[in-house]
Amino acid sequence: MVPALFGAVPVDPEELGMGENDKPPSLEDLETRLRAARDRRRPAGSGNGAGKGGGSDIGAGIRVAVDLVAGVAVGVALGLILDNWLGTKPWMLIVFFILGSAAGFLNLYRTAQQFERERRDKEEHGS
């Protein structure tokens, strides 16, 4: 998986002119091949598909756990602040705890969607 992080584009050594014939390729030749390589890349859309490698399974676990807890934590913090401010103890805390939990699950859902996109992306590129 680490090679997947670093091996950006698998390059055929033949393609770079490092093959059997030691004659260095001309610059124009290189230029045309560079252009061809650039064209092969899909045109930049608006954020379709995340990049390669989401991390190890432990990394994914920590990521999901932090996403879930962050939503609850922000909800509770907002609830406490509002309670202090409006003097409505403990109602805002209760309401925002529930909303925060929902936000945590929303974060979770979005992260899962992103994992799914990464997986599909990987399958498409056949790596």
Binding site: G59, I62, R63, V66, D67, V69, A70, G71, A73, V74, G75, L78, F96, L99, G100, A102, A103, G104, L106, N107, R110
Partner: peptide, 21 residues
Amino acid sequence: PIELISYLSRPVSLSVRLFAN
């Protein structure tokens, strides 16, 4: 409110994840 909390939790999860790891 849910979307707002989710949005506000972004910097929290972003920083806690790196720091915790």
